[in-house]
Write a protein that binds this DNA or RNA. Structure first.
Lengths: 204, 204
DNA sequence: ACCTGAACACCGTTCAAGT
DNA sequence: ACCTGAACACCGTTCAAGT
């Protein structure tokens, strides 16, 4: 068994979350899944919270760099948003891991920097560029949190008791969910994103 | 000491969260804050998770009804968004309580129903109305989660170590945060919201 | 109907002691 | 430098027994 290091602890944590979910993550269970006494983890990581903070920054690893396709302005901003969602979806409960803590670590800041930069390239003024970039970020986070929460629910809940919405009391929601079931997730995501970004792209 | 009931447990939980935050909430501490043996809570509430689910729906209590001002269409949709944010801000960690679980309970559904209805009044087609209403919801959730996370952080972290962003590496973020500090939260919120809702309001 | 007390199977964190 | 073992102060949940 190779010696443990911080990276191995993070990888082990992701593997555990993948199988059991964030809520089931425990220092003791994580340790035993790594074949190590649970006290050992504290040599590599300061606390459980510090571990989760590290996971949060880890989610965003490479989001900015991986898709350096040379696009600029609004196209780049859209690309960053897609890339952010993809990164959050890479790991189970990724959005909750990131949103749970107010992270100010390298990758988070790098994303903000790239997003504001893209908005500026699109011709937005100082203030508008920041507000637009952050609005996109809020939307992406909110979208994926709900996306993954729904996914986790269906994972645990028996499919047959999918809690049919009381169609008499909430007809629009009931019909709406049927509509969404026929609309690919990517398109749903795109819809709101394009609304946020529209005027800059196509000011008619 | 008046007899405990389910409503008193919920109220006690909110009071506890207000002071100590969601992460510190414990069935045992909650029980002792209510002056009761901790086993007792399980008479009123099925489990800690069920308690949190109940809190989640409780956050949205009255969001739809409280502000029945008679406005319709986009104006009503905006009103619902403001009302939703206000409700989430009413309780500490309100957004995390709501977003943590995928709730399908009365108040959540009522909000969806009202939002889709408003979008339809604005002239959106079946599909667009649903997508727009949900996009607004994602944005509001994402915004307030970040808003409250930042607030909790400043509550606990000594003000003097506000982790000045490395301005050399992330100049746009550093300048952006200064800009935001001079922009009222309500205006920041409004900015993205209006982007989402713009075309319907002012299709030029 | 509501509550207590005690038990059970867990937690996160610390730290001397080993290698 | 990294890990074990044991301890400490906690958890959520259950359930007989009381009133």
């Amino acid at each position: 068994m190779a010696r443990l290091d911080r990276a191995a602890v993070l990888a082990g944590a992701w593997a555990f979350i993948e199988v059991h979910g964030l809520d089931a993550l425990t220092m003791r269970k994580l340790a035993s899944s790594l074949g190590v006494n649970h006290g050992t983890l504290y040599w590599h990581v300061e606390s459980k919270q510090a571990l989760i903070d590290a996971l949060a920054d880890d989610v965003l690893e490479g989001v900015v760099d991986r898709r350096e396709t040379g696009s600029v302005g609004i196209a780049r901003l859209l690309e960053l948003a897609y890339s952010l969602r993809a990164a959050l979806l890479t790991h189970r409960d990724g959005a909750r891991v990131l949103a749970g803590t107010f992270v100010r670590q390298p990758n988070t800041l790098a994303f903000g920097e790239a997003a504001i930069g893209a908005a500026r390239e699109a011709g937005a003024g100082d203030r508008d560029a920041v507000l637009l970039a952050f609005s996109v970020q809020y939307y992406v986070t909110g979208f994926v949190i709900e996306e993954q929460a729904a996914h986790d629910l269906l994972r645990t809940e028996a499919a047959h008791e999918r809690a049919e919405i009381a169609a008499e009391r909430f007809p629009l929601v009931a019909a709406g969910l049927r509509t969404l079931r026929n609309t690919p997730r990517d398109n749903q995501f795109d819809y709101g994103l394009k609304l946020l970004v529209r005027r800059q792209e196509d000011p008619r």
